[in-house]
Simulated assay, not measured.
Amino acid sequence: MPQASSPIGVFDSGVGGLSVLRALQAAMPHERFVYLADSAHAPYGERGDAYVAARTHAITQYLREQHGIKALVVACNTATAAAIHEVRSSHPTLPLVGLEPAIKPALAVTKTGHVGVIGTRGTLTSAKFGKLMASLAGEAHFVVQPCDGLAHAIERSVAQPVPAVEMTRNTAPPPPASTETGALCKRYISAMGAFGSATGQMDTLVLGCTHYIFVAHELRALVGPDVQFIETGEPVARQTRRVLETAGLLHHAEGPVSPQGGRCATDHIRLLTTGPVAMLQAAAKRWLGLPPQCCQSVQVP
Rank of each mutant, 00 (worst) to 15 (best):
V223I: 13
E234I: 15
G200Q: 12
Y188Q: 10
V162C: 13
P175R: 11
G196R: 07
E180H: 00
A216M: 06
Y188K: 08
V227H: 05
V223R: 00
P176K: 02
G248C: 12
C185A: 14
R241I: 07
R220G: 06
A237F: 09
F214A: 02
T181H: 03
A194V: 15
D203V: 11
E155F: 01
I189G: 01
P235K: 12
F229K: 05
C209H: 01
A153R: 10
V165W: 10
E245Q: 15
Y212E: 09
L219I: 08
A247V: 05
F195I: 08
L205C: 08
A172F: 13
R169T: 14
T199Y: 13
C209M: 07
E218W: 01
A237I: 05
A191M: 11
G233Y: 03
H217F: 00
L205I: 09
A183D: 12
L250H: 05
G208T: 02
P174A: 15
P174T: 11
D203F: 09
A216R: 06
T168S: 13
R187Y: 03
T210E: 06
S157Q: 10
A247G: 09
H251I: 01
L222I: 08
Q160Y: 02
L249I: 09
I189C: 06
T168P: 00
E218H: 05
M202D: 04
P173I: 03
I154H: 00
A237K: 00
P173M: 08
A247W: 08
T171M: 14
G233W: 02
A198H: 14
L207A: 03
V236T: 15
S178A: 15
S190Q: 14
R220P: 01
I213G: 08
P163F: 00
P175L: 12
D203W: 03
G233H: 04
G248A: 12
P173C: 10
S178M: 14
P225A: 12
Q160C: 07
V236Q: 04
E231I: 04
A247T: 08
H252P: 01
L249D: 05
L222C: 06
Q228I: 14
P174L: 14
L250Y: 07
R187N: 07
A198M: 13
P163E: 04
G200R: 10
M202C: 10
P161W: 05
T240A: 13
G248T: 12
A247L: 11
V162P: 01
F214L: 13
G248I: 11
E231S: 14
S197Y: 09
L205Y: 01
R156P: 00
T168H: 15
R242I: 09
T168D: 10
G248N: 12
A247Q: 10
L207C: 09
A237D: 03
P174I: 04
C209Q: 00
R242L: 14
G196K: 03
L184T: 02
T181A: 03
P235W: 09
G224W: 04
R220D: 00
A216K: 06
H217E: 07
I154F: 02
L222E: 07
L222P: 00
A216T: 03
L219F: 06
V165G: 07
R241E: 12
R169D: 13
E180T: 06
G193A: 11
P163N: 06
R220A: 10
V215Q: 03
F229R: 05
R242P: 01
T199K: 15
H211G: 03
I213S: 11
